[in-house]
Design a protein around this nucleic acid. Sequence first.
DNA 1: GTGTGTGAAGGGTTTCACAGCA
DNA 2: TGCTGTGAAACCCTTCACACAC
Lengths: 206, 206
Amino acid sequence: MKKISESTIRRLSKYYRSLEQLIERNTDTVSSDQLAEMDGITSAQVRKDLSFFGTFGKRGLGYNTKALKEQLGEILGLDKRWRVAIVGAGNIGRALVNYGEFKKQGFNVCLIMDSDHSKVGEKILDLEVKSTDDLSELVQAENIDIAIIAIPSDAAQRVSDELMDAGIRAILNFAPISIKSRPNVMVKNENTAIEIEALSYFLSKR
Amino acid sequence: MKKISESTIRRLSKYYRSLEQLIERNTDTVSSDQLAEMDGITSAQVRKDLSFFGTFGKRGLGYNTKALKEQLGEILGLDKRWRVAIVGAGNIGRALVNYGEFKKQGFNVCLIMDSDHSKVGEKILDLEVKSTDDLSELVQAENIDIAIIAIPSDAAQRVSDELMDAGIRAILNFAPISIKSRPNVMVKNENTAIEIEALSYFLSKR
DNA sequence: GTGTGTGAAGGGTTTCACAGCA
DNA sequence: TGCTGTGAAACCCTTCACACAC
């Protein structure tokens, strides 16, 4: 398979969400123009992105919303159920357990851990907080596919290494440092500090 | 000033954070190679990024960590104190009030609002939750520079419009939809669903 | 007529490679 | 000698424009 760019994948996620909206509103058909408008890009971009994966539209007509959503879901692997572990039962960890978008898209948070023994045993929704002392065994026993790092920077690299040792190949990192990964492991960062600093730059320059 | 790319700005944020780390470890000097290694990019990229803003290094030697951090801080506008409002006192809103990185970098969260009247009056740290009914007046009275949207999708566009009407020019959006912005307004998105779907795609394709 | 699918063109970002300075 | 600063080359991504299918 030809290499698909990161930005294309990110846009597919957006199209997917826009299609969900359209379906809710009982719209059966959508043009690349409309999708583009919803996501703030160009229609050529939409068509090009889709063209990497096949031909989904009808010339002169547009795309069938349900069919396209279905196909994008398959491309993104949303037809599978992924088992997710969260490391860190602080504010972010808690917020994520409650994040509705996860369940809806097949991301099943089935393990949350913390190094703070006073938190171990606590319940968050129906999940009991486990100790990171047993990280490796827990991750393997629970068959985790994706790990989320929601702990302070200083421990993030060490925990990531433990996760990768335990066989994890996909990590979502909320700590504001760059995790050093390994071949065949993908790390994505969610760094609010970077985003707000980009805003700060924008406001400053004038 | 020549247009600087988004990705360059994002990397400057990373360099800034790496420099903080180095300074903590009492390192006085750093080469583009070392910085690159810390952030998982190439040294040429580091030098090119910096070259857009001036010449900060000494040939044969590298960069002075403190001086460079200082200068990057100025470029990013971190020498200023920005007044931040959060809309939405749910999990994300709460997590953000407690986010240490903000205070540290001069982002002063001084207003949090919610549309749920049962939450109004509640205290989060030393901040009292206000009603979004008074959004416009509150934002203006508090002299807000940056607004953070931490509410569900369906209300996000409406609230963003109200914020922009009230004069806000920088928005950080946590709702999983694309906000339609206006000229001279910058919207940045923090969309965990997109990140985890990129991981899902990565795990799926094989 | 309408809107897709796609080569080709265009624009922008990254990498290369080396001159030049400490 | 070592590492920066930077034009030039390479690469990648986006936009254009139009043939073609419905």
